[in-house]
Simulated scan of single mutants.
Amino acid sequence: MKSIKVLAVVALTTLASFTSQAQSSKTIVENAIGSKDHTTLVAAVKAADLVDVLSSKGPFTVFAPTNEAFAKLPKGTVETLLKPENKAKLQAVLTYHVVAGNLDSKAVVEAIKKGNGSVTLTTVQGGKIVASLSGKNVILTDENGNKSTITAVDITSSNGVIHVIDTVVLPKS
């Protein structure tokens, strides 16, 4: 019960940072821009020229790493990815966090249960992410075996849904 309360507090805090009310009339990009916890993600989306794509009709499901998630990467990684000559690699990393369709938390959990404990999601980048449950938490495992926990769910947007994650997931390099 204590972990549910902690998760609820984390989720509410993160949701509050997305604007006072994450309104479904805003796009995924507009909601991210309104979040003080996603400034690195927004800068990366801009550097990768993905603003128009992630503002388009969709629908998309975005697993949005926080600034703290990006800070967990090896020193210099973010700065290197943001260089113009690394635009294609940055696009690959960012589109690895996007799944076509509108997968709210209920749909993700149902798919995990139907999959006997896990579901493999194909990202827009073309790679795979495995979603599974650990207690009440949804865990994403990337193609390298790294894990990320979803810390806030169902931030609705006009063109999809955002789920906040605590670690950047990476495609196979």
Rank of each mutant, 00 (worst) to 15 (best):
M1K: 09
K2A: 14
K5E: 15
V6I: 14
V6F: 06
A11H: 10
L12D: 12
T13P: 00
T14F: 03
L15G: 15
S17R: 08
F18A: 14
F18V: 10
S20P: 06
Q21M: 08
A22F: 01
S24P: 09
S24M: 11
S25W: 00
S25R: 01
K26D: 11
K26Q: 13
T27Q: 08
T27N: 08
V29W: 03
E30Q: 15
N31T: 15
N31F: 00
N31R: 13
A32N: 04
S35K: 01
D37G: 13
D37P: 01
H38T: 09
H38Y: 06
L41V: 05
A44G: 13
A44Q: 13
V45W: 03
K46W: 04
A47I: 11
A47E: 13
A48F: 11
A48T: 05
V51S: 06
S56Q: 09
S56W: 09
G58D: 11
P59A: 10
F60A: 10
A64E: 02
E68A: 15
E68F: 03
A69P: 02
A69R: 03
A71H: 04
K72W: 04
K72G: 06
P74T: 07
V78P: 08
E79T: 13
T80D: 10
T80G: 07
L81D: 05
K83M: 11
E85A: 15
N86I: 09
N86T: 09
K87R: 12
A88M: 11
K89F: 05
A92Y: 05
A92T: 14
V93D: 07
L94K: 01
H97W: 00
H97K: 01
V98C: 04
V99M: 04
V99R: 00
G101H: 00
G101Q: 03
N102V: 02
L103C: 02
D104C: 06
S105K: 02
V108L: 15
E110S: 14
E110P: 01
E110W: 01
A111R: 07
K113N: 14
K113T: 13
K113M: 09
K113C: 05
G115R: 01
G117E: 09
S118M: 11
V119N: 09
T123I: 05
T123Y: 01
V124D: 07
G126I: 14
G127T: 10
L133T: 02
L133M: 06
S134P: 03
S134E: 15
K136L: 09
N137L: 12
V138C: 09
V138Q: 12
I139P: 03
L140T: 06
L140S: 12
T141P: 07
T141L: 05
D142G: 06
G145W: 11
G145H: 10
G145E: 08
K147T: 13
K147C: 03
T149G: 07
I150P: 00
I150M: 08
I150R: 02
D154S: 12
D154W: 04
D154Y: 05
I155K: 06
S157Q: 01
S158W: 08
N159E: 07
V161P: 02
V161G: 04
V161L: 06
H163M: 02
H163E: 02
V164M: 01
V164L: 00
D166M: 04
D166S: 10
T167M: 11
T167S: 15
V169E: 00
L170F: 05
L170T: 12
P171E: 07
S173G: 12
